[in-house]
Amino acid sequence: MPFAGTPLRDEYAAAVERMARRTLDALQGAGGTASLTEPDELLASLPTDPDGSVPGPVLAAARVLGPDLFAPQLFNSSSPLNPLNPLNPFRESTRVPLDGSAARLLAEARRVFPPPAADSWDGSPTGPPPPADDANLVIAWQDWAASALLAHTPYGGQAAPPPAAVPRPGPRPGSPPGPHDWQAWSVRMAQLSVLALPGLDGPVHELARAHTLDLARGTARSMLRRDLRTAARLARWLAWARADGRPLRLEVWPVLERIRLTGDGSARTLLELAIADRLLNGPPEPGRARTPR
């Protein structure tokens, strides 16, 4: 419940932070706390309004975290459904069965806060998009990821078709040639870090595979600019590319370690780090430090 005078924005930010913390705990198997692999435990652990409905800030938080709500299920090594688990009979399948409260919550959040109208730029290659459409493109891809994962649950319908365009590295139309544009592109990719999950693949992932050096440069740049959340998100893409078998020019674990020690300590950033860690190293072993070495 909001405190009197708490600005709405702070209240929503706190809700995102709480939900990121629960997801992180579930991902790391923190004993006794909410496990998203158990149906309804997440919902049961959340506050409800007197009428039993999920409060707006909680739904907004689910909308913000989107696909990352499924991270505990996707990475749970004991689950035969984990697409990274070699024992998973569905490993080669594009269908990753997902269930439980995360799906219910995300579906409800998407109902209450629908995706932006599809009348924004459709990615038509006939003309250069104005800069604002880059942001729309990011939102469109985040939505695609959420709907693609939800489609594997009883709460999702048909997976939405992927957006027609991807954020591309390289010069914009009309701008000078040369290796200039990795900066802006890597920032866009950082905003799309929720796509760096097992079970998701598409044109954005193809770009990540093809431009690991640009991702690495973006990571180093963000580190030097002390933009550690962007660095964490790009390191997550690098970890994803590494898990995909791509060679990297930047060691990822020192980046994760540095951000863990010097970052903002927020659950959102720690969740990015934890997902990157799982992509790099698989499930934690007893006695191993949380950040890989």
């Binding site: 290796p179 900066q183 690495a216 440069r217 740049r221 600019r225 020019r249």
Partner: peptide
């Protein structure tokens, strides 16, 4: 060659 573009970018900024 890998990192010079990064260093140039941050010190230009």
């Amino acid at each position: 060659r890998d990192w010079l573009p990064v260093w140039l970018d941050v010190w230009l900024e």
